[in-house]
Design a protein around this nucleic acid. Structure first.
Lengths: 338, 338
DNA sequence: AGAATGAATGCGAACGTTCGGGTGAACGTT
DNA sequence: AACGTTCACCCGAACGTTCGCATTCATTCT
């Protein structure tokens, strides 16, 4: 294990004091061309790289961004994580920061993980995701006045920096596309009322329907878990409604539900994309390989990751970023299910 | 932003020198019951938590484990990452370590990322994944004598600590199951020859076939990208072979290819699970929702993550772990495609 | 009684940086 | 000749810990 080279060894080799080396490296010194050259040579020859820990210690900063996510159960997908994480890591690295993932705890202990990282000085800021109403992390971090950016919004009355995907717009796009294809009886498979994201997306559905003067029958809105099974059951109910009430198109708030709906339709002998149109949300990687390939709404995840870090970096630097709140537009991906 | 409390403030409050506080906290001091109590009280009252950076600096350790993965292109899934990462994070945290994800670079620059983290002292060890033959990271880290564990094997002649999934066993299970269902003409959709993982899995296929005295026709082995498109094309070719040569079952080295095969079969009007049996590998989250739900081989990813960290921790501690090489058994998940 | 022991704590130094203030030499100015 | 300036560099201190050694005081042993 190559013993680490310190700034002092560089100094010796260059024949200057180690502090001078430091200054040269940080570009804040008046030094002659020649000594500067000698120092640079020494640095290169020894392969010296400043010890980040010592640096951080001096600067009282860790140059780390904390991030914690809800590990999904094995049946669920987290196709988001890969993209979100790597976009953040890249953006952070460009500014000399690193990401520090830490375990997501449930319930009371949730905030403790954050508190611990603050108190031990391990991170300079947080990106928090899976935000919902009354998120205890938000109130805690606001109260601590600790820099953070949320991926997702929370209660309207809380003012904090966030990046989010415009779910209203996403569903508007989906519904309007269906309407443009002549659909009038469009149902929605939604989430429980305690889900902010769910309510927002559903709001998009309602808004688009209303904008086109289509009224929404109460049976057309199914609320439940964002699972395959619920999607299937909900669609099954919807598709068994009397001919006058039965929807001819279904939008689901995520792909998993949409796939469930697809199965339900199939079980009833309906041809998806023909007899019934189905649109999902998320663009899960396999959605394109289903029968038929699924029309869905894709979220600009990498963009979101970049933005989160960008805002957080500005926040940590002390200057309020120009825009503390960013809303990104998703994109409707047309395939064969609708 | 609550100003950080240092050990000195605790000392003042407890009326002792700050070094004594340190000793008490690290349990290496002879102190009277009472002062110990006073110190503990002060710690609690002030909510003091030792500054990790200062600690690391003193200890010349970062308590960080570096990890870098290949970000997949948007069409591909990385359903592995979530599980792998969170299992590592959890295991690491239990030992006071954290994970440091950093960008994966391609080609020449690949090793530089690792070198940089070593030289800046940001990490104490690495977990490397997506290992293949002649992986430059392995030779580099061995040469540097820097602690690391690979998730995946490489050239047989290299001796290094690894955790891997037994691909031979995985395909044996798949093939033997097919044989037990009376299949004799079993084809394989495999990967290019430069893929170690691919060769191993294919080896499992060959081994199982041979063990049961079934000979393998050369046309039955299709080698190509692990993509949907290749899976489809390969299966299409296989299923168009003359009746005497046409396989009645197909094993693919990953689910994406298997899904492609599924489509091909469908296009030819074959009923999968009936006219043709297909088995995938990976248990991608959506595989269960396909038509028909796919039989596939599931890898114990969380277990692998835990083991990687466990071995690495032992390595960094200086003691050679009992087992430097771990091979985990995958599990055949029976569904309807075979 | 004087010395040796031990318990309880203090102290200085060090980890590798950065930063603000020196300091001496060379030079120009009056 | 005395003085200010600038250049090019050096030096001490500090960031928050931990660690080894020293110190003090009370107690026990010979």
């Amino acid at each position: 294990m190559t013993n680490k080279i310190t700034i002092k060894e560089v100094a010796v080799r260059a024949g200057v004091s180690y502090q001078t080396v430091s200054k040269v490296l940080n570009g804040q010194a008046q030094v002659s061309k020649e000594t500067k050259q000698r120092i640079m040579d020494a640095v290169r020859e020894l392969g010296y790289r400043p010890n980040q820990i010592a640096r951080n210690m001096r600067a009282k900063r860790s140059h780390m961004i904390g991030y914690s996510w809800i590990p999904t159960d094995p049946n669920q997908v987290n196709h988001i994580l890969d993209q979100f994480l790597s976009s953040m890591v890249l953006e952070a690295e460009a500014a000399g920061y690193h990401l520090l993932p830490f375990p997501f705890r449930e319930g009371q202990a949730l905030v403790d993980g954050y508190r611990e990282l603050i108190n031990t000085g391990l991170v300079d800021g947080f990106v928090i995701s899976s935000v919902n109403y009354n998120d205890p992390r938000i109130t805690f971090l606001l109260e601590q006045n600790f820099p953070f950016v949320a991926f997702g919004r929370s209660n309207a009355e809380l003012d904090f920096p966030y990046v989010d995907i415009d779910g209203v717009d996403g569903l508007c796009q989906a519904v309007e596309y269906l309407i443009s294809r002549g659909q009038r009886r469009i149902a929605a498979i939604a989430w429980p009322e305690d889900s902010r994201v769910g309510n927002e997306r559903l709001g998009g559905y309602l808004q688009a329907m209303q904008a086109h003067g289509l009224d929404v029958q109460t049976q057309w809105i199914e609320r439940g878990e964002g699972t395959f099974e619920f999607g299937r059951q909900a669609a099954s109910r919807l598709l068994r409604l009397s001919p006058s009430e039965r929807p001819t198109a279904i939008v689901a708030l995520n792909d998993t539900q949409a796939i469930g709906a697809l199965h339900a339709a199939r079980e009833l002998g309906l041809e998806v994309g023909q007899d019934i149109l189905i649109i999902g949300f998320d663009d899960a990687p396999m959605s394109q390989y289903l029968f038929p390939p699924m029309t869905t709404v894709r979220q600009p995840i990498r963009e979101a990751g970049r933005k989160c870090v960008e805002i957080l970096l500005a926040l940590m630097k002390g200057n309020q970023p120009l825009k503390r709140n960013v809303l990104l537009q998703p994109e409707l991906i047309l395939r064969d299910s609708a």
